[in-house]
């Protein structure tokens, strides 16, 4: 039953389906050199979303993440095929920047892109470096999303780096992917004062106790659900949220209410 104290968990256990929608703010797509995925195409991912009650999914495909020349087209293709379900983050390669073109691509394709994604650790480049300012100025002006890979103790995308962006660009919807894993409590405590900073749950399920830290420090209103699909099962994250020591109202905030509010506020 997962959690005898949760009506949501009991209903899930009875039917095998979560009795509320899910908005997934952190996903990928297509194959990856280091990993075997049982499925990874847009078609398969949407089928998986249907089965698990995932209403919308924001992603940045692996081809875009790792190929600065040709990868982005696959994001566009997938969103155009499933316009009611998918939206993409345009990747920023910190060592291979072309802000004029990339901002134009996002701006001219609002049906495809919700913002940008940046992986400081993978680029080994600080996310708050001023080279990114043109992107951040655009996001600040348009109130779009910035999904950051964030990790505890990182010199590239740690708490200090993200705080620096949040201070200078208060209108950007900053999603802290992985919630500063291993420093999640400190990250949530320090950054909750910035109302547009959100904490996302990918990787958090692998350490029992981390989710409670984030919810207790920042409040469930600041937590967004994410899976890294096709890396991790949607239900692996769902099970963590259902079983964690938080309330059903918190769970609903995380699964969909915060996402609905954020998307509604963007129009």
């Amino acid at each position: 039953m997962i959690n005898k104290n949760s009506e949501l968990a009991l209903e899930f256990w009875r039917t095998g389906i979560l009795p509320c929608p899910i908005r997934d703010f952190h996903a990928h797509m297509d194959e990856h050199a280091e990993i075997y995925f049982p499925f990874s195409s847009a078609d398969e991912m949407v089928k998986d979303m249907d089965r698990n009650g995932v209403k919308s999914l924001f992603f940045c495909g692996h081809f875009a993440l790792d190929d600065p020349l040709y990868g982005e087209q696959y994001n566009v293709k997938a969103v155009r095929k499933y316009p009611d379900r998918l939206r993409a983050y345009h990747i920023i390669h910190s060592r291979c920047l072309d802000p004029e073109r990339e901002i134009r691509e996002v701006d001219e394709n609002p049906d495809v892109y919700v913002g940008f994604k940046l992986l400081g650790d993978y680029n080994r480049f600080p996310v708050d470096d001023p080279v990114h300012d043109p992107y951040y100025e655009y996001l600040n002006e348009t109130k779009k999303f910035l999904l950051l890979h964030t990790w505890g103790g990182s010199a590239w995308d740690g708490i200090d780096n993200v705080e620096s962006i949040a201070k200078r660009f208060p209108e950007i919807r900053i999603i802290c992917g992985h919630s500063f894993f291993s420093r999640q409590k400190e990250g949530a405590e320090r950054l909750k004062k910035y109302p547009n900073v959100y904490f996302e749950l990918t990787a958090i399920p692998i350490v029992r106790g981390y989710l409670e830290d984030i919810v207790n420090a920042a409040g469930s209103e600041r937590v967004l659900f994410g899976t890294d699909l096709p890396w991790f099962s949607t239900m692996h994250g769902v099970g963590m949220v259902l079983g964690a020591d938080i309330g059903d109202e918190d769970r609903k905030n995380i699964f969909y209410r915060n996402g609905d509010r954020l998307l509604g506020s963007r129009g």
Binding site: I17, V207, G243
Partner: peptide, 18 residues
């Protein structure tokens, strides 16, 4: 892998597996 991981995670994965 309790108590290292959340019991709910793998319960939900297997419960809902196709």
């Amino acid at each position: 892998a309790f108590p290292y991981r959340y019991t709910g995670s793998m319960l939900a994965v297997v419960r809902s597996a196709a």
